[in-house]
């Protein structure tokens, strides 16, 4: 399949390994990525906090660019960030609700010759994996099943709430997909208290203690549940859970050492991509437990 691909900002900045690992696994899953390189940040909810119309217009522009790719054969728009998913879905809900409002927004876009038509399909890689590629197909592609790897899912708020906007229901349990993917890859799903909670990132500059307390608690819960690592479809969660983990450990006064993987990295490991190619060496918390596991299966991966 071919997708109009919005990698987001953070995946090209602080978590470059996310963008890299997505690029590495896409061909193996037969996904062709057409990058929306002229698009802008979705606003991560912060721009909407300042001005809804601004966020709506910026995302309408991104959707319009994606729709150009869709008319040229892309199946849908895909993102790799829970926060992009949530922030963009929120804007889309307003844009799709009213032809009158859409016309106002399109008026601003018309300078650039762009127009957003309602009803774009925009999915996180996690949803594409389960709904478009399918777990059965994914299973057939696994080269090194994650046997004996204990993985805790961490979703990030924006991809699980609010359930009505995100079309999460019994027929489409998108808030359980991470567990399903971990299982399909042969791993063991760890149930722990923080899996659907907030990593605290949005208030890291506003109430640092509370923010780190959140990250620290969830990581601690995962440690207590004996997870080997966490996996997340959100690079912002990754910032708070991995980049800030040393500070979070200080905040909660305990050792954590919990590696946090991006979703494409976990998929990549099971599909046989080397940890190095997936950029695992760029993490702040060395994913030693994960690498040990993959070495046991794959053999040496070379020094890093």
């Amino acid at each position: 399949m071919k997708v109009a691909y919005w990698p987001g900002c953070v995946s090209r900045g602080f978590t470059a390994e996310l963008h890299g690992s997505m690029a590495a696994v896409a061909p193996m899953l037969n996904i062709e990525l057409v990058e929306l390189d002229r698009a802008s940040c979705c606003g991560a909810g912060v721009i909407a906090e300042h001005s809804q119309e601004l966020a709506d217009t910026l995302n309408a522009r991104t959707f319009a660019l994606a729709q150009q790719e869709i008319t040229q054969g892309a199946d849908l728009m895909m993102n790799i960030c829970s926060t992009c998913q949530g922030a963009q879905s929120e804007c889309q809900q307003r844009l799709d609700a009213s032809a009158e409002y859409r016309a106002q927004v399109n008026e601003t876009l018309s300078d650039e010759g762009l127009e957003y038509q309602d009803g774009i399909i925009n999915k996180n890689f996690l949803w594409v994996l389960v709904e478009d590629i399918g777990l059965d197909k994914l299973k057939t592609l696994v080269k090194q099943p994650l046997t004996d790897l204990r993985v805790g899912p961490f979703y990030g708020c924006y991809i699980v709430r609010p359930t009505d906007r995100l079309d999460i229901n019994a027929a489409q349990p998108r808030d359980e997909y991470l567990g399903q993917v971990i299982e399909a890859l042969g791993g063991t799903v760890i149930d722990y208290a923080g899996s659907h909670k907030c990593c605290g990132f949005p208030i890291i500059t506003m109430n640092k203690e509370a923010s780190l307390e959140q990250a620290g608690r969830h990581l601690g819960d995962a440690v207590d549940a004996e997870a080997d690592c966490l996996v997340t479809p959100c690079p912002l969660c990754h910032l708070n859970l991995d980049l800030q983990q040393p500070m979070a450990a200080k905040q909660v006064g305990r050792e954590l050492n919990m590696p946090v993987l991006h979703l494409p990295q976990l998929v990549g490991l099971a599909l046989g991509v080397s940890p190095k190619e997936l950029g695992l060496q760029h993490h702040i918390v060395k994913p030693t437990s994960v690498i040990d596991w993959s070495q046991a299966v794959v053999g040496g991966v070379g020094g890093w």
């Binding site: 809804q52 106002q104 876009l109």
Partner: peptide, 24 residues
């Protein structure tokens, strides 16, 4: 660098006299 289209959106929307807030 922000593409011109993005800059233009900021100009137009931030330049409005009143906030245009669509409330579902």
């Amino acid at each position: 660098k922000a593409p011109d289209g993005v800059k233009r959106i900021f100009e137009v929307v931030e330049g409005r006299d009143e906030r245009n807030e669509f409330n579902l």
